[in-house]
Design a protein around this nucleic acid. Structure first.
Lengths: 345, 345
DNA sequence: CTGTTAGCGCTTTCAC
DNA sequence: GTGAAAGCGCTAACAG
């Protein structure tokens, strides 16, 4: 029932003015030690708590940052958010979550909504699907609200981004398969209009070429990131006259589907067929036949995105710095691609 | 660069007063159609966007709710948050995330911090570890900020909660094992000072008693929710003079560890030994030997917690309603406990 | 229908 | 060292 105490309440009780209370509370040096004590004590006594909203209105800083992701119940995005929160909370910031469910229209809504809420910055991973509308990033940029992309980005001048080197991830994975003695490596990609998938594909392709293997475009199939879709695409691959002897998938779920299909045909993994996934989803490590995968260090990604944000707000507002941080992915080698015959060498 | 436009800017431009602009924008019926049009058009033209902070300060409602969880990069909590966000966003609310990392001290900090930020409510899952400090829920309740517990709760008068029926979950899982013909069922619990684990244990115990089996306390081992800990505890169980023929674990990770240990001894699952976990983590479904587990419908839990919150703010502030919603868990039966011999019957 | 005024809670010049 | 007053952007009586 009790209304929240304000500085006026303390001022009244002490027969001083609100300004003095404010100063005392904020450790202003021109306040006498006596008053400071008195104020602090009564503040505690009256359960005073600063109303950040008023402060925010006055100062123009809300100490809230928005994070926009396709969905939050995905290990990757949840981990990024964890990184962001871990980094920003100690600096006094709160993290507001918005989900786009992968629809661009919602994305725009989210941005406006966050802008209305006067967030001090927005960190986001852009969505894929939906019509190719013009996103209103311009408007956002005009308002001088720092915008930082992570994972999936768009190239916009003045906008920083934190991503991983997807090309390298694809290259590493493929090189590893080649090192295992695989000769005919297929690639289960995803919609290659999306930059990250295109890059993984390019890394894969380059590794094949660099190693003097034959590059066969028919071994590349775009596959939605679902277990069943992985099975379907793998069926196609295995039914080819000259089937592959390895798969590099840009999704762990697809890799799992592939493994299921391969096993069901009595083909031995990894001895006869190797599989590598992407994203290092928790389950890849738990499987009996653990799955080799490319780790994207999502927590780190979140932390760094947060740091970039802090830099940008720290800057005098005039200087538009633009940073493109690219993290190096790490291949987690597990059973699905580790031939004991190669180990023995 | 461009400063944000305020209603004063559009008022000035139109030679009317800010109040009129405000009314026009808010669809106040006493405004002439002409002015409304004019205002709306200029607003759009000038890229006006409402400053929710000012509104919040004025109205005392921030349209933010805080969600406090031990950590966000856990499938369960991320899913709950998803449910909360899905429900609240359409109502104009934003969700602020705080993590406690399972420390009570941080929990208190988080609450204060959210209170300072003037959130309209707090949804939280309480943390386990850390010293048994007095939580300052009283203070929160005094401020009349709706507090809603989910999953893990504390019994506090006037505080609503959304949980699952952990007793039933434990009972169902155990009954299922008994139906499979298991006679000597062990239970890998967790710290039973925590209500949810105690209840799962009690459900397990009751099912055993109800079915006329012998209840043996030595078959119950408290085990931290880690794969390795599951292996350790299972070792102990299997090395007993009279080892069990099934395990009901209150954690999927522990169940996984158990399965690893059991398999390593050449014991056949599910024919010779059945295992059931709890939480329905995504990986349980992906394993080759998929794991039977109790689903807690986290998204649903989040949605309902959000709905309870909406009810409470909808209420005239005077009425302190207290709701205790209990969801029924669902047993997801999979390979780790499904004997074909029983199926054949 | 629209203008005037006041106030949400806080900080911050400018005086004294 | 402390008070007085103004203002952040918006809404809501109260007038007219």
């Amino acid at each position: 029932m009790s209304k929240k105490t304000t500085i006026y309440d303390i001022a009244e009780k002490l027969n001083i003015t609100a300004a003095t209370v404010s100063r005392a509370l904020n450790g202003n040096p021109k306040i006498s030690e006596a008053t400071r004590q008195l104020v602090n004590d009564t503040a505690k006594e009256m359960n005073y708590e600063q109303n950040k909203l008023a402060l925010a209105l006055k100062s123009g800083k809300s100490f809230n940052v928005g994070v926009i992701v396709p969905r939050i119940d995905s290990n990757f995005f949840a981990s990024v958010i964890r990184g962001v929160e871990d980094e920003l909370y100690p600096q006094g910031y709160h993290v507001i979550i918005c989900q786009t469910h992968d629809q661009k229209s919602v994305e725009i809504e989210n941005i406006n909504s966050l802008l209305n809420a006067q967030v001090d910055g927005i960190l986001m991973s852009i969505s894929n699907s939906g019509p190719e509308e013009t996103r209103n990033f311009d408007q956002l940029l005009k308002k001088n609200v720092p915008l930082i992309f992570f994972d999936r980005k768009e190239k916009i001048p003045g906008v920083s981004s934190v991503t991983i080197d997807d090309f390298k991830g694809g290259y590493q994975a493929t090189q590893h398969l080649i090192n295992q003695g695989c000769k005919r490596i297929a690639h289960l990609s995803n919609n290659r209009k999306i930059e990250i998938f295109e890059k993984r594909y390019l890394g894969y392709k380059q590794a094949i070429i660099d190693n003097g293997l034959e590059f066969d475009e028919s071994l590349v199939i775009e596959t939605m990131s679902k277990v069943d879709e992985g099975r379907k695409s793998t069926k196609i691959l295995l039914d080819m006259p000259e089937p592959p002897d390895a798969i590099f998938s840009s999704s762990d779920f697809v890799a799992l589907g592939a493994i299921q299909e391969i096993k069901s045909r009595g083909i031995n993994i990894p001895e006869e067929f190797c599989v590598v996934g992407f994203a290092n989803e928790p389950f890849t490590r738990f499987m009996e036949l653990s799955i080799t995968s490319v780790d994207q260090s999502p927590v780190e990604m979140g932390r760094i995105a947060a740091q970039v944000f802090l830099e940008e707000v720290g800057n005098s507002k005039k200087i538009k710095s633009e940073r493109q941080v690219v993290l190096t992915p790490e291949l987690m080698i597990r059973k699905s691609s580790l031939k004991s015959s190669v180990l023995a060498k």
